[in-house]
């Protein structure tokens, strides 16, 4: 399962394992093998398009419910 370059704004994973590394190179611990995912819009493991939520599935812009991360919001 390949990870996309960019993932949906509403994808959440249990990344409580935390950041493996800090500084200017954050590594988000989204281990595709063992971590569970949920969609913030449905609060469950199934997206609003009735498809499963996963790191490998929630990055594709051709998924109907995909939402771009808000890049402007923070002005960064």
């Amino acid at each position: 399962m390949e990870s996309p370059d960019q993932y949906c704004r509403y994808l959440r994973g249990k990344n409580a394992y935390g950041l493996l590394e800090g500084g200017d190179k954050p590594f988000l611990n989204f281990d595709p093998a063992t971590t569970t995912y949920w969609c913030l819009r449905t609060m469950g493991p199934v997206g609003p398009d009735s498809q499963p939520v996963h790191l490998s599935a929630c990055g594709k812009e051709d998924r109907k419910c995909f939402t771009m991360p808000e890049t402007e919001k923070t002005g960064e």
Binding site: D5, K25, P26, L28, P69
Partner: peptide, 24 residues
């Protein structure tokens, strides 16, 4: 918690396997 809506976050497919240099 990481907040993905802050900015575009690029996920490494295979993370760097080197030991990183100490912070400056």
């Amino acid at each position: 918690m990481a907040n993905p809506n802050k900015k575009k976050v690029v996920l490494p497919v295979a993370p760097d396997t080197k030991t990183h240099a100490p912070a400056k």
